[in-house]
């Protein structure tokens, strides 16, 4: 473990959007579950409990959308670890080999932990799927939101979604995708911990500081 030096990997926009996404997904999941199946205690009809829960959901939804779009934009202009190429390793033979190696490590077949500065190929692919889930949530969510104003701009913008989904199918998709994201979050925290322990590159703290410990070649 010689020749370690600190390397700036995650730029500010990457870290900021990461943590905004964390907060938004937490808020959206909790308020979303309450909107889908309200378990509220209120005695007075003059309360506005559900109103506020929906308000928080919609504000968090807009914030999340801006965050995701910003991150997508940054994948075009950010450093190599933020680049969109990190998320499509399955397009290159090298990336596919990396995915297989990582999978072999995860399934205890191999003892060689993946050594990469940014995302390992399997993680990059997982985030690609997660971005698809994000887009599903944003599109289905705004389509449902647009139902409040049938002649509004959003309703016209998302009219095509109602051709792809039935009304109830849209609700079910929006609901189930949340659970997939919850499952992803559990896996995400776990594998960050695993890599922090095995790789000893400080991956856990790197999402706060932006720096990882990297070994100099030779």
């Amino acid at each position: 473990m010689a020749n370690l030096y600190e390397k700036y990997v995650w730029e500010v926009p990457v870290r900021v959007t990461h943590w905004i996404n964390v907060i938004c997904i937490a808020l959206l999941s909790i308020t979303g579950l309450l909107i889908g199946n309200p378990k509220l205690f209120t005695l007075s009809t003059s309360d506005y409990l559900m109103g506020w829960i929906r308000f928080v959901h919609f504000v968090a939804a807009y914030t999340f959308t801006v965050s995701v779009v910003s991150r997508l934009y940054w994948s075009l202009i950010g450093n190599r670890y933020a680049s969109w190429r990190e998320f499509v390793p399955f397009l290159t033979p090298e990336g596919r080999r990396g995915m297989l190696d990582t999978l072999r490590y995860y399934t205890f077949v191999s003892r060689k932990a993946p050594h990469v500065v940014g995302h390992n190929s399997l993680a990059g692919t997982a985030y690609f799927v997660v971005f698809l889930l994000y887009l599903t949530m944003i599109v289905t969510g705004f389509t449902l939101y647009s139902e409040r104003a049938p002649l509004g701009v959003t309703h016209k913008l998302f009219g095509w979604v109602m051709v792809l989904f039935t009304n109830q199918g849209l609700r079910l998709t929006h609901h189930m995708t949340m659970w997939f994201l919850v499952a992803f979050a559990i896996h995400h925290v776990y594998s960050a911990w695993l890599m922090d322990v095995k790789e000893k590159g400080g991956v856990m703290s790197s999402i706060f500081s932006g720096y990882k410990a990297v070994r100099k070649e030779g």
């Binding site: 490590y105 003892r111 050594h115 990469v116 500065v117 095995k198 790789e199 590159g201 990297v214 070994r215």
Partner: peptide, 15 residues
């Protein structure tokens, strides 16, 4: 993973 010994873990290599 926690009880598994002998994983090669040398930190990320420089790109």
């Amino acid at each position: 993973s926690a009880f598994r010994k002998g994983d090669s873990a040398e930190g990320a290599k420089e790109d």
